[in-house]
Design a protein around this nucleic acid. Structure first.
Length: 580
RNA sequence: GCGCUCGUAGCUCAGUUGGAUAGAGCAAUGGUUUCCUAAACCAUAGGUCGCAGGUUCGAUCCCUGCCGGGCGCACCA
C-alpha cells in the first residue's frame, strides 16, 4: 500500500501540473504532517516555493492548486492559511480505511523498497582474544538495528563481522597460550586477564618478547602448530562473542564472520590492482596511495600507506581488500560500515581511493555510519571507577540486575521466574534503547537511572505501553489477533490523533533507513506510546458503561498500537514482554 | 597548523527537504486520577537555538567568519 503522505503527494503533483503545466511535474508538493491540529492533519508547503517560478504570489498559487485538486476519498476540506500553507483536513472514514489496510498488511503498510537490492552491513568487529567492552556496544547495536530495518524493507542484507584476528599481537598471545600449557580442551575463562597477562609479559620479559616476535614470523609463515594455536584463540573468542551476541540480542552468527585473515591471500592482489590502476606510489620506502583532497600538516598530499617499508600490510590494505571482495564477489548495491567517528577520515580515504581507481560500479553506494563516544557522568569516555574499560558482559549484567530491582519492588505479585525474564528483556532493552535513541553522531552520557526510568523516551516507557495493551486483552479475555479494524471509529480527539500517529509508522521506518539513523524510529515510537497513553487516559476500553461498538473500536485501535510497537521495537532489536 | 564533528530550557535530548507560536523527559509549581497500570495524564513556568554576517518571502536547519568542546592527522587498528 501507499502511505497517506505518498497519496497526497501524487494528488498535489497532479493538481500542480493541471494548474501550471507539465514543466512542474517534478515539483515536490512538500507534504508533511501538521504539528498543530489547527493547521489540519497534513499540510502542503509547495505554494511558497512555487510562487516565484510561476510568477504569482503564494496565496494565488495555493488557490490554483486547491482549485485543481481532486480530493478523492481522503479530503474533508482544504484551507489556505498564512503566506500560502495548504492545510489538509482528512475524512475520518479515510483514516479508518488506511488503518484497515495497515492492519491487514504483514509489513504494517511498508512497501518493499529494497526488493532486488543487496546490501552489506559491516558492524561489531571485535578483536580475537580481547574482551568485548563498551566500545563494541554501539557498533553492534546500531548495525544490528540497521540490518533489521533494511531486512524489513525487503533488502537482501549480508551481515559482515570483520573480526580482528590478525596482527603482531598474536605472537605474544600464542606464546602465552603455550606457556599456560594449552591443550585441546583448554578454555580461556577470562579473555581480558589473558590478554593483559600476555601484554604485561611482552613488556616486562625480554625473553618472552623475543619468542613472541619469532612466533609472529611462524604464524605468517604458515607454521602448522602455530596456526593450530591461533585457531584455538579464535574458537575460544567466538564462544565469548556468541555468548555476548545472544545476551544482547544481536543477529550475528559464525556465518557472518569475515575476519581480517580471510583477506590475507588477497592483499598482494590489492597492491597489484592499485598499480594497474595507476594509483600506487612510493614514499619513504613504503607503497602509498594519494587519495585526492587529503593534506598533511604542511599542506602536502597526504598518503595512505598500503605496504610498509618492511613489506608488511596494514589495516588499510585489508579494508581495501574487503571492499573489493564485497563489490566484486558479493556483488552488492550498497556497503555500510558502522564504526565510531574517529575512523571517518580513514573510510573517506578508502572510499576516495576506490573512486579515483574507478572501482565503484555504477549504482553502488558506500556509506560510513559514524557514531560518537559513550561518556560517563564526568563527560569523559565511560570507564569503571578504577579507570578500566567496562566489559560488555558486565554492562549487560548490571542492566538486568537493576531492572530486576525495579520489578521486584513494584511487581512483587509476579513469580521469581517471571521477574527474571522481564528483567532480562527490559534491562537489555533499556541499554540498547539508550544507545539508539539519540542522534548517533553525538556522544551520549551513560546514565542508568535515566535509561531504566519509566518516564521519558526510554525502553521501559515503550514496553509499558505495550504491556498495558496486553493487559486490557488479558482482562477482557480476548485475543488481539481477533480484533476487526473495520470497526474502528474515531470519535474522540485522542482516538484520531492516535490513528494519525499509527499511519506515520512507515514514514518513520523509511526515515530511519534513508538517513541510517535508528533514533528517528525511536522518536516515532516514543510519540506513538505517548499518544497511546493519552488515549488510554481519556478513552476507557473495558470499563463501566462503554458501548460494545466503542469497545470494539478501541480494542482494534489498541491492538494495532501493540503490533506497531512490537514491530518497531523489533527493528531496534528490542523485545517486549506481556506483563511487567 | 590542517581536517572532521558537536554547541537548542538548570540537566538529558528531539526538531522531517528551509515553513506557521522551537518541542519532549527530568528537576520546579499547581491540579486530576488511584488501578484496564511497574502511575500516569493535564496545566503553569522555563529559550539571545554559541556569536556575527550573508542567501531567502521565510533560517535552529544552507553559506562565510569567529568563539568553545571532542576527535583525527603515514609505516598500530
Amino acid at each position: 500500500m501507499q502511505d497517506p503522505q505518498t497519496q497526497f503527494r501524487s494528488a498535489f503533483s497532479d493538481a500542480i501540473v493541471a494548474a501550471f503545466g507539465d514543466q512542474y511535474a517534478d515539483a515536490d508538493p512538500l507534504i508533511q504532517s501538521s504539528r498543530n491540529p489547527e493547521f489540519g492533519d497534513y499540510q502542503a508547503n509547495v505554494a511558497m516555493s512555487l510562487a516565484k517560478k510561476v510568477g504569482d504570489n503564494p496565496r494565488n498559487v495555493a488557490t490554483k492548486i486547491v482549485e485543481n485538486l481532486d480530493l478523492g476519498d481522503w479530503g474533508e476540506k482544504l484551507q489556505i492559511a498564512g503566506p500560502g500553507f495548504i492545510n489538509i483536513h482528512l475524512k475520518l472514514n479515510y483514516l479508518v480505511s488506511q488503518l484497515v489496510e495497515v492492519a491487514g498488511d504483514e509489513h504494517l503498510g511498508l512497501e518493499q523498497i529494497g526488493k532486488d537490492q543487496k546490501v552489506v552491513i559491516d558492524y561489531s568487529g571485535p578483536n580475537v582474544a580481547k574482551e568485548m567492552h563498551v566500545g563494541h556496544l554501539r557498533s553492534s547495536v546500531i548495525g544490528d538495528s540497521l540490518a533489521r530495518v533494511m531486512d524489513f524493507l525487503g533488502y537482501q542484507v549480508i551481515r559482515q563481522n570483520h573480526l580482528g584476528d590478525w596482527g603482531t599481537q598474536f605472537g605474544m598471545l600464542i606464546e602465552n597460550l603455550i606457556d599456560e600449557g594449552a591443550v585441546a580442551s583448554t578454555h580461556i575463562a577470562d579473555l581480558k586477564t589473558f590478554y593483559q597477562g600476555a601484554k604485561q609479559r611482552f613488556d616486562d620479559e625480554p625473553e618472552f618478547a623475543d619468542r613472541a616476535r619469532k612466533r609472529v614470523v611462524a604464524l605468517q609463515g604458515g607454521d602448522e602448530q602455530t596456526l593450530e594455536l591461533w585457531s584455538k584463540l579464535i574458537e575460544e573468542s567466538k564462544l565469548h562473542f556468541n555468548h555476548a551476541y545472544k545476551l544482547l540480542g544481536v543477529q550475528l552468527t559464525d556465518d557472518d564472520i569475515r575476519a581480517e585473515s580471510f583477506y590475507n591471500d588477497q592483499l598482494p592482489g590489492v597492491i597489484q590492482a592499485l598499480e594497474d590502476a595507476g594509483q600506487l606510489q612510493e614514499s619513504q620506502g613504503a607503497k602509498v596511495v594519494y587519495p585526492q583532497g587529503f593534506k598533511d600538516a604542511d599542506g602536502n598530499p597526504f598518503p595512505m600507506i598500503v605496504l610498509k617499508s618492511d613489506g608488511g600490510f596494514l589495516y588499510a590494505t585489508t579494508d581495501l581488500a574487503a571492499l573489493r571482495y564485497r563489490i566484486n564477489e558479493l556483488k552488492v548495491n550498497r556497503i555500510i560500515y558502522v564504526t565510531d567517528s574517529r575512523q571517518t577520515q580513514h573510510f573517506a580515504m578508502i572510499f576516495k581511493t576506490f573512486e579515483q581507481s574507478n572501482w565503484i560500479p555504477q549504482g553502488v553506494k558506500l556509506d560510513h555510519v559514524a557514531f560518537g563516544t559513550v561518556l560517563g557522568n564526568d563527560r569523559k569516555p565511560f570507564k569503571t571507577r578504577s579507570g578500566d574499560t567496562v566489559k560488555l558482559i558486565d554492562l549487560m549484567d548490571e542492566a538486568v540486575v537493576r531492572a530486576l530491582n525495579a520489578i521486584a519492588q513494584k511487581s512483587d505479585d509476579l513469580s521469581e521466574d517471571q521477574q527474571k525474564n522481564i528483567a532480562q528483556v527490559v534491562g537489555i532493552g533499556s541499554l540498547k534503547y539508550a544507545d539508539l535513541s539519540s542522534d548517533r553522531i553525538k556522544d551520549y552520557v551513560f546514565d542508568w537511572d535515566r535509561m531504566l526510568s519509566l518516564e521519558g523516551n526510554t525502553a521501559p516507557y515503550l514496553i509499558n505501553a505495550y504491556v498495558r495493551i496486553q493487559s486490557i486483552f488479558r482482562k477482557g479475555e480476548m485475543n488481539p489477533a481477533n480484533v476487526d479494524a473495520t470497526k474502528i471509529k474515531l470519535n474522540d480527539d485522542a482516538e484520531k490523533s492516535l490513528a494519525l500517529r499509527l499511519l506515520q509508522f512507515s514514514g518513520a521506518v523509511r526515515a530511519a533507513e534513508s538517513s541510517l539513523e535508528p533514533h528517528r524510529l525511536c522518536t516515532y515510537l516514543y510519540e506513538l506510546s505517548s499518544s497511546f497513553h493519552r488515549f488510554y487516559e481519556q478513552c476507557p476500553v473495558l470499563k463501566g458503561d462503554v458501548l460494545p461498538e466503542v469497545r470494539d473500536s478501541r480494542l482494534a485501535l489498541s491492538a494495532l498500537v501493540a503490533r506497531t510497537l512490537k514491530a518497531g521495537l523489533n527493528l531496534l532489536g528490542i523485545d517486549v514482554v506481556e506483563r511487567m
